Amino acid sequence: MTIERQNPPGLHTPPGYHHVTVTGSRRTVYLAGQCPLAADGSVVEGLLPQVDQVVANTSTALNSAGASPAHVVRTVIYVVATDRPVLSAVWDRFTKSEIGAAFTSASTLVGVAQLGYPGQLVELDVTAALD
């Protein structure tokens, strides 16, 4: 399967991701929003430890579908923050993680007011494409 990542002429050069991701996949994998929940269902404390838990959960979910970070065609990161340095720290932590390749496709980083679980500071939405 081919996944084509593009930055069309006339658009700014993004920092690590691509504006457009095109695939001819026959199978699409949609993950539920991956939350910073430990196996016992508790919310991990602290922003960067939450990112690490989301990375672990996302890796497990992708593997269960026969996918890897290289198959990811779109990500949306939600962070309870309005401060740009906090958003940048989360982006950096994700892109340097074991699933960092997932963020080279079409990616969005959004600061939000709150997420679903009390104490939750980050969530990741992932779509992958497989043959």
Rank of each mutant, 00 (worst) to 15 (best):
L31Y: 07
V72K: 03
Y78E: 12
L87M: 09
F103H: 01
Q120H: 09
G10Q: 06
R84P: 14
T58C: 10
N7G: 01
R5G: 01
A65K: 12
V86I: 14
V55A: 09
V73D: 02
T23Y: 11
P49N: 12
A113E: 13
G33Q: 06
R27I: 06
S88M: 12
T21G: 08
G116E: 13
T104H: 03
R84W: 08
L121M: 13
L47W: 10
E123S: 15
V126F: 07
V76R: 14
D52E: 15
C35S: 15
P9T: 08
V20H: 11
Y30K: 09
K96F: 00
T95A: 04
Y117I: 00
Y78P: 00
A56M: 04
T58I: 05
P15V: 07
P49S: 13
L37N: 03
P9S: 13
P14N: 04
G119H: 09
Y78S: 12
A32E: 13
S64L: 05
E98N: 01
R26G: 15
S59L: 14
V43M: 11
S105V: 02
A128H: 04
Q53T: 11
Y30E: 04
P15C: 07
P118L: 01
V22R: 15
D92F: 03
A106H: 10
R84N: 07
G116N: 03
W91H: 08
E123D: 13
T108I: 03
L87Y: 02
L37T: 08
A67T: 03
T95C: 10
V79P: 00
A89D: 14
F94R: 01
T104Y: 00
R93T: 09
Q34N: 07
R74E: 04
N57F: 04
R26F: 00
L115R: 09
G111Q: 03
Q6G: 00
I3M: 02
I3D: 05
A39C: 01
T82H: 13
H19R: 10
V20N: 05
Y117T: 00
S25L: 05
N7H: 08
S105L: 01
A67L: 05
S59Y: 02
T82C: 03
V43S: 11
A113G: 05
D40Q: 11
G46T: 10
V72S: 04
S105G: 14
P8S: 09
M1G: 14
H18W: 01
P49K: 11
G66S: 10
A38I: 04
P36L: 04
V86P: 00
T82D: 15
A56L: 07
V55T: 13
D52N: 10
T60E: 13
Q120Y: 08
S25G: 15
G16P: 06
A65P: 00
R93S: 11
S68T: 15
R84A: 11
G66N: 08
F103E: 02
Y17C: 09
A89W: 02
D125E: 09
T21F: 09
Q114R: 13
T23D: 12
Q53S: 07
F94K: 00
E123R: 10
I99G: 06
G41I: 10
F94D: 05
A101R: 06
D92L: 06
E4V: 12
D125K: 05
A39T: 12
V54Y: 05
T23A: 15
V86N: 02
D83N: 14
Q34R: 14
A38S: 14
